[in-house]
């Protein structure tokens, strides 16, 4: 499918991300830790990956971003980002792709920021490097980005250090940095897991806004099926490296086929809020 790279992406409705039967293997023991993941993502759409630690969901994301840890490789399958075959790219091209076409935010925002540099300056740095802006323009753009992620006082936050901000504010800053170069795909890997529920709801709102306003496509990864249910058009349920169930969110939620998906759902129905709210609603 190399011909795809020739077509200007704006004029097509081709997927911005296509993952086809991806298998990831550890080179040391030859063990397959991801055993065939496939999905496609169109602009403005959201795909969710649900699974517990060790299920392979994060490794799948890292393969898509071209940042697999040492001694792990994509053993089979193909990943196309905006039509480009990731495996055919050099390290330099991959670095160029990250940030400008595909970007990501992770669970612990503080660990991705330098504690001794004001957070706004770090966002501006991304703008400088990825967009080639000058110092003043980069600062202006960074302020716009901080406003775009609904930080109440962008000027103030710009000059603050990571330790002065709450977890929710830090995650907004990281999202601002992630969208600085107008990527077409954003991966949110457990991006709300460490946040309070009320803050999580706000970050999920923000992701929905970005999708609606700029056609950003999202990959939302979570251990919690309910988080994924908030946003996603399609859901993949992973366990031990395998996709045990995949389909439109409503189908997976209301007619789950795999016993593991049923366990995840029954946990919510028996032990979660759904136990009370579902009866109210129905």
């Amino acid at each position: 499918m190399t011909a795809l790279t020739e077509i200007p992406v704006e004029t097509t409705v081709d997927p911005v991300l296509a993952v086809r039967d991806v298998r990831i293997r550890g080179q040391v023991d030859g063990r397959e830790i991801v055993k065939g993941v496939s999905f496609t993502l169109a602009p403005g759409k959201v795909v969710g990956i649900v699974g517990e630690s060790g299920s392979g969901k994060t490794m799948t994301c890292r393969a898509v971003l071209g940042i697999l840890p040492p001694r792990f490789e994509v053993a089979d399958g193909a990943i196309h980002v905006a039509g480009q075959d990731v495996s055919a790219l050099s390290q330099a091209e991959l670095t160029e792709l990250r940030g400008s076409t595909i970007s990501a935010v992770f669970q612990d925002p503080a660990s991705y920021l330098n504690p001794s540099i004001p957070v706004g300056k770090q966002v501006a740095e991304v703008v400088k490097v990825k967009k080639g802006f000058g110092r003043r323009a980069a600062r202006q753009r960074a302020l716009e980005l901080l406003a775009a992620v609904r930080l109440r006082d962008p000027e103030l936050v710009y000059g603050q250090y990571a330790h002065e901000l709450s977890g929710g504010m830090l995650q907004r800053v990281l999202i601002a940095a992630a969208i600085a170069a107008d990527p077409r795909v954003l991966i949110a890997d457990e991006a709300t897991t460490a946040l309070d529920v009320t803050v999580q709801a706000e970050i999920l709102d923000l992701l929905a806004d970005l999708r609606d306003d700029s056609g950003l496509a999202l990959v939302v990864v979570s251990h919690d099926l309910a988080v994924v249910a908030q946003l996603c058009d399609e859901v993949l349920v992973m366990r031990d490296g395998e996709v045990v169930e995949q389909g439109p969110t409503s189908r997976v939620l209301y007619q789950p086929e795999h016993e593991y998906t049923r366990l995840l759902i029954s946990e919510h129905e028996q032990y979660g809020l759904d136990r009370f709210l579902a009866r109210e609603g129905s």
Partner: peptide, 28 residues
Amino acid sequence: PARDVIAAPEHPYTKLLVGSAPTLRMAA
């Protein structure tokens, strides 16, 4: 009682908490 607090919260903070919690039927 758990049922009352979740199905009919009274304090605004409890309402926000219940309303923010992700459920299988979207946010409450």
